[in-house]
Design a protein around this nucleic acid. Structure first.
Length: 425
RNA sequence: GCGGCUAUGGUGUAACGGUUAACACUACAGAUUGUGGUUCUGUCAAUUCGGGUUCGAUUCCCGGUAGCCGCCCCA
């Protein structure tokens, strides 16, 4: 590496490198997510991030696909897109094996998503997202379960109901309210929903001006005089009341929640951080009963939610809930001389039979003193020199680097010895 | 796509229109060859790129690029 211009060490715009300590933290969080979802009977699936572009090109969003995804043509002339979200892939997979699968499906997936956007706070070009879906059941207990599960995910990290809030609305209710106030055409309704989505950023005057002269559907929701609106509203309020009775105290009806996706048909919900630093939605979801049938066949009802790694990690940091995470080895096995490396490796191999135990064997010619320095720098808590002497003695002098204490420990119980200490501390 | 702010070793900072760009951390080597953390010594290492103003630019101006932030968008 001379003074010549060299390759940049920066990562590509809008994406992140994860060095081992950062990745350990993130994957510990994913581990927690997997654990809670699995305990609810949800099964993990995976798919390639490469998809045919057509998958995302259902009506009216060509522009979004062209401008906001990573899309290219492969050598065979196929148009390819890096998945910007998981739900279309899920719908495709489910539709593809519809006859073989046992419904309802409880599935989840954790993986990366790509969006070609200008990076800024909370918004990157590649991020990790967890998608959770319950497919094959209409509204009712399925909606209740999925919202309870979203709640449970956050609770499983140790969050209390004061740390976050679940805001719920219904697309069916909004649609009824739009009909009741004279929004008959699809475009008009969509335009209104986009406006509603931005309402929080606007002053009441701006909102009224942008909305125009017509009656605001929100007031139709408020009044609930229209029979259809009344019915939908009561249905939603019953759902909320039921969830409250099941112990979810932090759930509220929020008629301004729309969610961006066109494919939602029923209940929609978001989880928001209650701390004012992070007003962005951490999790979003809803019912999408029409999506799977785009691939043919009868409609297949479904509900699900997704949450990204950036918001989750911010939330956990803000509330001091980051799970303990380390991939650092437990024991540094030092070699008194380079000739001892083979016996040290052989010893490490016996320790590795305990699969949760992580060993690190020195392979350099450093002196033992330097090896200890090396162990300290790497954050490895225990050190033991191992050479022919120890091999014969059948025990090692185990050094705890934090305290400097040394004790003679029999070789065959060292793993147990260290792991017990780790848990007691 | 539009706008604002920023850009100095690997990291965090400093400085000035004028000799050799300073400090701390990190890294590496040594003091120290079967036991570390302290300390000490030494070494490596930077003005984002291009153009302009000027006797002279890291500093001032313009542009590119990159980063951060906001708008749009968020399917």
């Amino acid at each position: 590496m001379s003074g010549k211009p060299s390759l940049s060490t920066d990562s590509y715009k809008g994406v992140r490198d994860f060095y081992p300590n950062e990745w350990a933290r993130l994957s510990a969080a994913f581990g927690q997510v997997r654990e809670i979802l699995s305990s609810w009977g949800y099964e993990e699936y995976q798919a390639s991030p490469l998809e045919r572009s057509e998958l995302y090109e259902s009506k009216g969003n060509e522009e979004i696909i062209r401008d906001q995804t990573y899309s290219f043509e492969d050598r065979g002339g196929r148009r390819v897109t890096l998945r910007p979200e998981m739900t279309p892939t899920l719908a495709r997979m489910v539709a593809g094996k519809r006859r073989e699968l046992s419904f309802p499906l409880r599935w989840f997936s954790i993986g990366n998503r790509f969006r070609y956007e200008r990076p800024q706070k909370g918004r990157l070009r590649e991020f990790f997202q967890t998608d959770v879906d319950l497919i094959g059941l209409p509204e009712g207990e399925a909606d209740l379960e999925v919202i309870q599960l979203a709640h449970s995910v956050f609770r499983s990290f140790g969050a209390t109901d004061r740390d976050f809030i679940i805001r719920v609305n219904s697309r069916a209710l909004l649609s009824a309210a739009c009909r009741a106030t004279g929004y008959t055409d699809v475009d008009g309704v969509r335009e209104y929903w986009q406006l509603l989505d931005r309402k929080a950023k606007m002053s009441p005057e701006e909102f009224a001006l942008a909305r125009g002269a017509r009656k605001d559907p929100l007031s139709a929701v408020e009044e609930a005089t229209d029979p259809e609106v009344k019915a939908e509203k009561e249905k939603l309020l019953t759902v909320i009341a039921t969830l409250k009775s099941r112990g979810i105290s932090n759930i509220v009806f929020e008629p301004e929640i729309v969610r961006g996706f066109d494919y939602y048909t029923g209940i929609v919900f978001e989880v928001q951080d209650t701390s004012p630093e992070n007003p962005r939605a951490l999790l979003g979801g809803g019912r999408y009963d029409g999506l799977v049938s785009l691939f043919g066949g009868d409609p297949l009802p479904a509900i699900g939610f997704a949450f990204g790694d950036v918001g989750l990690m911010d939330f956990l940091k803000t509330h001091d809930l980051l799970p303990e995470a380390t991939n650092v080895p437990h024991l540094y096995i030092g070699t008194p001389s380079p000739e001892d490396i083979p016996v040290a490796q052989a010893y490490a191999a016996t320790l590795r039979e305990a699969t949760t135990f992580r060993t690190f064997v020195n392979l350099t010619e450093k002196s033992l003193g330097d090896q200890i320095k090396d162990a300290v720098k790497r954050g490895i808590p225990y050190f033991a020199a191992y050479g022919s002497e120890e091999e014969q003695r059948k025990s090692v002098r185990l050094k705890e680097l934090a305290t400097g204490k040394e004790e003679e420990v029999a070789q065959d119980i060292i793993v147990q010895h260290i792991l017990t200490k780790e848990h007691s501390s």
